[in-house]
Design a protein around this nucleic acid. Structure first.
Lengths: 245, 245
DNA sequence: GCCTGCAAACTTGTATACAAGCCTGTAAGC
DNA sequence: GCTTACAGGCTTGTATACAAGTTTGCAGGC
């Protein structure tokens, strides 16, 4: 709504949806203020809005960080998506031809991006399918909710997803659209449930949330005398791999 | 998260959920700042968070107002609630005895409030049932989403609901819990769908969004000469009945 | 009498200043 | 050599000041 502050918010959110910002990235107020050519005030505005939307978090007097959802939060996010997206498909009565057309087109674009090997845009597109679906079937409110959830699951995938199976996801999307086309929305809902389940099952929730996890595995099995507890006990509240500078 | 700013946010949100703040109410920054004993900065923080949550709105250089959802937005809110709440009941596999117990207790409290005639708390309790349900079955994420939605539908009810049928709602809640107790979650979902549908059907979406609607009815039928168009044409962007002072 | 134009009061929008806490690196002590 | 204490720099937290726009009330002209 505000001229520039909304842009900051949008810019960061869409960068996250596109996978261009990693979870844990630090977002310094002054740095963003310089970048956008405004004062810290506006940046703080945008940050607090994004915090409300569950996308960033503030660590007192240390800075703003893109959220790194825990394993528990990851489960919550996927459960929530499952609830909402299957609920949507089951609630809807009928699907207009225009909607079907636009969904088919979206899936086609997905396929094209995958075949071209356009890695950067395909992750964005795969998430976008769900946003598109909510937009087509539901309403603006629902779309916004799903958008925020998708941002979250995108970050989760970046943290916990070992392999990306983009083709499979796109196939699932295709099947869902096909079921909708056949007018079998119950089937579409079931397929959506399975689809989200598959993505969730493809995660490795035992690793990664902090960068030390990798180090710990590197040290623990080999040398396991008295120096092991020293490293993990440094408590590390919010690790953050700063990118620039 | 912040010590006091979060309290402002919470205070206003729960006041809305309890029906203690009317839609369209103006929330002046300075006034709230004085009230909470902080500076405008913190108030603005809270306001912007609430705006992100869809509870208040800012009108440029005029002030913050509790949202007055349009008829269209009302429909969206109810559709969204239907999607999420039926989706939740259909997604859940089984319900633990502890959850059932707490839901039964909640319904009992509802009934008590209704029989006592405690109007102020019963509206709050009726909305709270849904929040409670999400909390018991789902997760924190889902609960927060439903909480925001409930705030919205509470405001909608205050604008468009001619009669409050609290008993019927409480009965519906009872039936939903009974279906859950019987393990028939599909039935619970259907009952929830009907319940939300009933509440929505009980609205009069043709009236009220602005206070002038009432005036117009008061003037138009009786005297319908040349003075009628003068009042409605003052365009009134956001009326707002200020309460205090 | 009614309309128009203007000015004062009030409100939010934005930036800036300063306070407070966190992190890092360095130097002193054991 | 290793640990501990401390200082400096950096970042957010909060308040305040000023700019910009909106509303309201009043006075003047028709």
């Amino acid at each position: 709504m505000n001229p520039a502050s909304a842009n900051i918010e949008e810019a960061i959110l869409s960068a996250i949806l596109a996978g261009r910002i990693n979870p844990g990235t630090r977002l310094g107020e002054q740095k963003l203020a310089d970048l956008f050519g405004v004062s810290r005030t506006r940046v703080r505005e945008a940050m607090m809005r994004l915090e409300t939307r569950g996308v960033v978090q503030v660590s007192a007097r240390r800075g703003w960080f893109v959220v790194e959802p825990s394993a528990e939060e990851a489960r919550e996010a996927f459960q929530t998506r499952r609830v909402i997206e299957t609920g949507l498909l089951q609630t809807v009565r009928e699907v207009s031809p225009a909607v079907l057309k636009s969904l088919r087109e979206h899936v086609a674009i997905e396929r094209a991006a995958i075949e071209t090997g356009d890695v950067s845009s395909r992750a964005c597109l795969l998430g976008d399918f769900h946003i598109h679906l909510a937009d087509a079937l539901g309403n603006r409110l629902l779309t916004e909710i799903i958008r925020d959830l998708t941002a979250r699951t995108t970050l989760i995938s970046m943290l916990y997803q070992p392999t990306e199976k983009a083709e499979e996801s796109s196939h699932d999307h295709e099947d869902i659209v096909a079921a909708m086309e056949a007018g079998d929305l119950a089937r579409a809902a079931r397929l959506m449930d399975e689809h989200i389940g598959k993505v969730e099952a493809g995660l490795d929730l035992t690793a990664k949330p902090d960068p030390l996890a990798g180090l710990r595995e590197l040290l623990s099995p080999s040398t396991f005398a008295g120096n092991a507890p020293s490293v993990p006990h440094h408590h590390t509240p919010a690790p953050s791999f700063e990118k620039e500078d």
